[in-house]
Amino acid sequence: MEYFLQQLINGVTLGSIYGLIAIGYTMVYGIIGMINFAHGDVFMVGSVTAFLVVLGMGLTGGSGLFLIILALLLVAAIAMIVASAYNWTIERLAYKPLRGSFRLAPLISAIGMSIVLQEFVRINQEGRPKPVQPIVTGGYELMTRVTESGEFIVRLTNMQILIIISTLVLMAVFTTLIQKTSLGRAQRACEQDQKMAALLGIDVDRTISITFIMGAALAAFAGLMFFLYYGVTDFFVGFLAGIKAFTAAVLGGIGSLPGAMLGGLVIGLIETMWSAYFTVEYKDVAAFTVLVVVLIFLPQGLLGKPEVEKV
């Protein structure tokens, strides 16, 4: 029971990160119907940027709570801006000129862009991972159980609290943004029918750009959290995290924001539970299998609408 509770906490933490990335996939897919294959790498750019800024600030675990929070806010802001600039540029250079081209063109272009981002970061920052001492430390011991082999303590770390709470806050902010503002209305209109939206005076290009920027900002925040949680990041973290987050987006129902979050949590839980109760080695296989099973048997996702084939 205690063991399960611990895995639950870990899974929700991981799931929050996946959920934040998944939102970027789901929004972009919703609005222009393409998988932004480079989105995982935008997450990576956010993560690496956060790593560099933290390093540049000389931030360590002993800096004092207030200072750490203030500094992390600044790091988050920088990472979000930089990642947004990346995603905006990618959209302008690699996707926008391809609107109206054949269906696979943007996907192939996105794969190309993903390779470019990975290699760009690898060349500039080397390939090997560089671990950093934990910055957000401490936590709470929720439960202790004494067993023959020693005691098992259920921990909820401050880092986990930070991740879960900030995810909730960001989710709330973005949901309001999309449901209540004219920008959100424009986005939903473009999802339905871009031509009609344009005829009604919505700047479709701008709406799409903003969607990419919003997705990137969330991914960058996830990147920061990922880096802080694991204490390490490198040029390749976006590949796996990206695919898992994409799985989350599809699982939740592509185009649905709450769906992306829900999907993220499910994927995070599956991954941690699989590692805890089966084999750690095959946790990625489990994630990929979930992806395959979901795409084949549940392509409309948990909260999505089914598509009818037109003849």
Binding site: A94, S101, P106, I111, I115, E119, I123
Partner: peptide, 20 residues
């Protein structure tokens, strides 16, 4: 030589744009 994958990625993007 590390630039070669970067070039492949760029090549894919450019081909899609100019000669899909």
């Amino acid at each position: 030589s590390q630039l070669r994958m970067l070039a492949v990625g760029l090549g894919m993007v450019l081909m899609m744009r100019f000669r899909p």
